[in-house]
C-alpha cells in the first residue's frame, strides 16, 4: 500500500489515541464510574456521562464482525480490498483493514480472530490495522 490514504487530523479529545498507535498501543477509554469501555475517544462516558474516565491500552485482540470488499479504485490500495468492522475483545467496534490475508470472501470469514498491527503513515500518524491472529493466540 502507498501512503496516499486520507489521514486523520487528531483533535484534543483524540490525541491520546493517535499518540498510542505511534508507540504500538491501541488505546481505549474506560469509565471510572460505570466501567463502560468505549470508542471513539471522548473525555466523558457515553453510557453515563461521567467525566471521570481513564485511558488504557487494549489487548489488540478482536474478531471480524462484518466487511465489504471494495471493487472501486482507491489510490492507496492495489486491487480489491476489504473495509472491515472489528469488534475488540474489550467490546467496542472499529473500522479498519485486514492485512496478511487474501482479500476474498473465502479468506475473510466472519468471527475469525484478529490481532492489531500498526502501520506508520508519516511521523505523526500510525494506523491500527488487523491481521489474522497467530495460532494459539486466540482470546
Amino acid at each position: 500500500m502507498s501512503g496516499s490514504r486520507p489521514l486523520p487530523e487528531p483533535t484534543p479529545e483524540t490525541q491520546h489515541f493517535w499518540d498510542g498507535t505511534r508507540v504500538g498501543e491501541l488505546r481505549l477509554q474506560r469509565c471510572n464510574d460505570c466501567a463502560h469501555v468505549y470508542f471513539p475517544p471522548r473525555p466523558f462516558c457515553p453510557a453515563c456521562a461521567s467525566r471521570s474516565v481513564s485511558v488504557f491500552a487494549a489487548s489488540g485482540r478482536g474478531h471480524l464482525d462484518s466487511y465489504v470488499i471494495s471493487h472501486r479504485p482507491h489510490p492507496a490500495f492495489d486491487g480489491h480490498y476489504a473495509i472491515a468492522l472489528v469488534v475488540l475483545e474489550e467490546g467496542p467496534r472499529m473500522m479498519s483493514n485486514i492485512v496478511g490475508c487474501e482479500q476474498t470472501p473465502e479468506a475473510l470469514v466472519l468471527d475469525m480472530p484478529l490481532e492489531v498491527t500498526f502501520e506508520p503513515q508519516n511521523d505523526s500518524i500510525t494506523l491500527p490495522l488487523f491481521r489474522p491472529a497467530a495460532v494459539g493466540n486466540k482470546p
Binding site: R5, P6, L7, P8, E9, P10, T11, T14, W18, F39, P40, S70, R72, P73, H74, A76, F77, Y81, I83, A84, M94, M95, S96, N97, Q121, L127
Partner: peptide, 10 residues
C-alpha cells in the same frame, strides 16, 4: 475523518 476515512472508504 479520523476513524473511517483512512481505511479505504469510497
Amino acid at each position: 475523518g479520523q476513524f473511517e476515512a483512512p481505511f479505504g472508504v469510497a
